[in-house]
């Protein structure tokens, strides 16, 4: 039972519950879609724990949980695109950038799945993951640029968009480093489990911490923005 209660799963469940309370009546589809994303993320994180145990016993590709995360990657791309479309759409027209991003993502996803991965869907699409990390970081940085350029003042302390973007930026920034060093850390001579989980757990806490505050701002504090 204890293996199901990790910092990871606890903060995710808290974030999901906050999202349900704060966003269920939100007017924007992007924000509402976050409830679905968080529900599926919680479901995947908790549901794949037995798969990890199975993989640890028999380390063969079909026992890996990578295929679940490959499917989750599609949902992540969809929901984040909706969110950035909504957030950046307040300042500029994002249609062209969104279309190009989705096309590149789809092509890269399929190419990696069928031509790069030796195990196909049973191997994680890490290149696509890195690509969306870079893509989301660029979106986040562009959002900061736009709020600095904007003539009107936004009270960042109570801005739901700002906190959502900040969580996303910090997580994906760290995620890139993890992806870069993943191959080093997974070598048996290093205590990969310890170091990798420290970094990832910290990033997850930052991400969901910012998101929880963002949802609270969205529901109750946006009027002070």
């Amino acid at each position: 039972m204890n293996e199901y209660i990790t910092p990871y799963t606890v903060i995710e469940v808290i974030c999901f519950i906050t999202a349900v309370i704060c966003l269920n009546k939100d007017k924007e589809p992007g924000w509402r879609a976050l409830i679905l994303l968080l529900f599926i993320t919680c479901f995947v994180e908790i549901g794949t724990i037995p798969m990890i145990n199975m993989f640890n016993k028999h380390s063969i590709a079909v026992n890996s949980n990578a295929w679940v995360y490959n499917i989750l990657l599609l949902l992540q791309m969809g929901v984040f695109t909706l969110m950035f479309d909504n957030i950046l759409g307040r300042f500029i027209s994002t249609r062209l950038v969104t279309i190009i991003s989705v096309i590149v993502f789809t092509l890269l996803y399929l190419y990696e799945l069928f031509y790069i991965n030796k195990e196909g869907i049973f191997e994680y699409n890490s290149i696509t993951n890195s690509f969306i990390s870079v893509l989301f970081i660029i979106h986040c940085l562009y959002y900061y640029y736009l709020i600095l350029r904007e003539d009107t003042y936004i009270n960042l302390k109570f801005s739901a968009e700002f906190w959502w973007v900040t969580g996303t930026l910090l997580f994906y920034y760290g995620n890139i480093v993890c992806n870069v060093f993943y191959n080093v850390l997974k070598q048996p001579q290093y205590n990969k489990a310890v170091h990798y989980s420290y970094i990832i757990n910290t990033l997850i806490l930052i991400l969901y911490g910012c998101w929880i505050y963002s949802f609270i701002c969205r529901k109750w504090l946006s009027k002070f923005e």
Partner: peptide
């Protein structure tokens, strides 16, 4: 690696 990650996050 942890130091590099931290430096990376400082940006």
């Amino acid at each position: 690696i942890i130091l590099i990650t931290l430096i990376f996050l400082i940006a």
